[in-house]
Amino acid sequence: MIIFFTFGKLIAIDISNPKIMKKLFLIALLPVLLSSCKKDLIEKANLDTTQKVTTEFKKLNVNENFDWNSSSMVDFKVQGMQTLTTINRTLKVSSVAGDVTYFVSTHQMDQNLETKISLPKIVKSVKVSYGTLEKEVTLSSNQINFNFLPASTEE
């Protein structure tokens, strides 16, 4: 006889009864069986992702609109801002670290600009600088949008 406390009640089990013991054995085995099924599912999922890699170029299954280029022409849009005096400075688009320049030209601050820049597709953010103003811009819908409004909330 085993006595234990569960769900707020004292329960007594007669371990000499074979029917009760069989039920107990099945209940004890259940987590093992479930765990085994789970493992099978995980292994199947892993196989699915590794088995599908194509190894012959001619057998590639590619969408008909797939762009094979690793660079793309990105729209670069600058929203001009009216100024009290004419301000002409160098406008530059570079890597966030600033070590690679993607685009450089002169720009009058009160003018809008729309042009295209060739960027590797792995580039997700750029730094845009004008004079000594600098902003980090994240590409959105293959566009770089820049304006001269300060990010500062104080000065």
Binding site: K52, V53, T54, T55, L60, N61, V62, N63, N65, F66, D67, W68, S70, K121, I122
Partner: peptide
Amino acid sequence: ATWAESNGSSFSDW
């Protein structure tokens, strides 16, 4: 292959 077959969404740095 994964880059091409994912339509460019995976491994664009292949």
